[in-house]
Amino acid sequence: MYTLTGVTKTYSKRGGTVIAVRDVDLSVADGEWLAIQGRTGSGKTTLLQLLGAMLSPDSGVVVLGGKDLTRLPEPRLAGVRAATIGFVFQTFNLIPTLSAQENVEAALVPMRVADAQRRARARAALHSVGLADRAHHLPAELSGGQQQRVGIARALVKEPSVLLADEPTGNLDIDTRDEIMSLLRTLWRDHGLTVVVVTHDCAVAARAERVVTMRDGALSAAAPPRAG
């Protein structure tokens, strides 16, 4: 699914340049569940953004499904994000003024899905994460776990081939964390997704088929894929 070759990303900050990702080579197979571990500031989120076509590397190549993302202009990248990649964020990133149903529908807007179909698919996605009865609640009226379920429904409603999750359980308690991870695992199996999860939580990483660790922007170790 993914092939990263010699990918480097730097940021200019006051006082100098920070190398967030340093000469990374990485392959992710179709349907694989990969966990990226590392300390805060190790570059794992930047790597996830590169995978998600939200950042362009300074050097190197990021290939997704045969497409070199580094050669695509922003409108085409937006199209890739809209159709191929689903995101799950640590802080849920739900639009506070929209209901759970409308937040899920927002993911279908760039795909120009007809109104009725958009609503039906959003309802089905919420049902699949067990929140059919919370469709008209605002995010502020939902618990953290419920908000993350909405976030997962939003990521999956467009039926992407890749799910990228940035610390998906970072803001949740242990019980809710396990619930969310079980849900993600079920959906991964049911939908045949390729999942990349960034986490510093070993319990979350342990659910992955393969774990890579980042240190100072470089992939320092790669654990062999585990049996699902």
Partner: peptide
């Protein structure tokens, strides 16, 4: 963050 999220979802500028 809201607009960034929408862009991450594939919304064009």
């Amino acid at each position: 963050r809201e607009f960034g999220t929408l862009k991450a979802l594939g919304w064009r500028s």
